[in-house]
Simulated assay, not measured.
Amino acid sequence: MLHYKTYELADTEAPWVVFVHGAGGSSSIWFLQIKEFIKHFNVLLVDLRGHGKSKNIIAVKEDHNYNFEDITLDIIEVLDKLRIQKAHFIGISLGTILIRNISELVPDRVSSMIMGGAIIRLNIRAKVLVTLGNMFKRVVPYMWLYSFFAWIIMPRERHKKSRLLFVNEAKKVAQKEFMRWFRLTYELTPLLKYFEEKDTAIPTLYLMGEEDHMFLPAVEYIITKHTNSWLQVIGNSGHVCNVDQPKEFNERAIAFLKKMSSVQQRTFEMEEYAAYAVV
């Protein structure tokens, strides 16, 4: 099972928020969020397989290549163990793909989704990067590849903190594990196309940096096609907007979650009242 950490409020009715990091990161990338979120919500942090403190757990469990569904089921397994029936999910970068996959596999367990630096579609530059990565992954040291990708995605000086955070976390990922994760790029295009065509109608807030040049245009398009989807652009921020502008990210995300929790509670009360009235 994945390594995880929880922060629980005394209020047993408090909603759960599950944070999902991206490839090469770990739950530590949420260090600028925890303090604010635990004031309002129960919080669950997970380290994905091969990352953070989960890097040895899954390796012992199985020794073969895996797919996005395998990684998604890892998260659901933690929810089951903790008996979390429903939660709000917050992801960054590739973590948004896993959250979207959770909404496919167990939609009734997803109250809402907050997608930071969401990957909705691969543009030409991203596809070229993936192709080059697959061509050279066995001859070029994997950290060179990761550092190069990080620089392409987060090129500006003010992205340096985010870039270094992810590169330093990626150094903790074994090369064999990196290869397994990189193989997932073969699944990306068909999976993202499917996600684009299917609207879950689950309330979704996209929080994107205005300088997220590779992924922001696709999000601007998708919100015109999907219901219950909203986009908020954070200024002076790149792909990893929760690190570039944590105050803005936290305020916008918490406001959205509070609104969604309130709406869902009122809906539940109305349904309960309607059921009682019918009886």
Rank of each mutant, 00 (worst) to 15 (best):
N67Q: 08
R266M: 07
M1H: 06
Y206G: 04
T227A: 14
T185A: 13
I34C: 06
E169P: 01
L2E: 07
V106I: 15
E104I: 03
I254N: 01
E271R: 12
R180I: 15
L132D: 02
I84T: 07
F178I: 15
V110E: 01
T72E: 05
T224I: 03
F182I: 11
I92C: 12
S93A: 14
V106D: 00
G22M: 01
A59G: 02
A23H: 04
I234E: 03
F68T: 03
L105T: 10
E210V: 14
K53E: 13
V240F: 14
V240S: 10
V279Q: 04
K137G: 00
V46T: 11
A59H: 05
T204M: 02
R49L: 05
F136S: 02
F249A: 07
N123M: 10
M135K: 10
Y186L: 10
R49D: 02
F166W: 09
Y221Q: 10
L105M: 13
P217I: 15
T72Q: 04
I71A: 08
A201Y: 08
V130S: 03
K161L: 13
W144P: 00
I254C: 05
R156G: 04
N168G: 08
F136P: 01
M208G: 02
A218N: 03
I97Y: 02
K172I: 15
H159K: 02
V233Y: 03
N67R: 04
W151A: 09
E169I: 13
K35I: 07
K176I: 15
E69A: 09
L98N: 05
L145N: 04
I76K: 02
E169Y: 07
D63C: 09
H64A: 13
L48F: 08
F268C: 11
A170Y: 10
I102D: 02
P107V: 13
F19L: 15
K61L: 11
G95T: 06
E211N: 10
K55Y: 08
V279I: 11
W16C: 12
A23K: 01
H21N: 13
V278P: 00
S112E: 01
I234H: 03
N228W: 01
F256R: 01
L257M: 06
L2M: 13
E196T: 11
Q264S: 14
M179F: 13
V140K: 07
V110L: 00
N236G: 10
N134V: 07
S262R: 06
E272H: 10
Q175V: 12
I84Q: 02
D80A: 08
F149G: 12
I57N: 05
P107I: 12
Q33F: 09
E62P: 00
G133T: 15
A201E: 11
V219I: 14
I124E: 11
K81M: 12
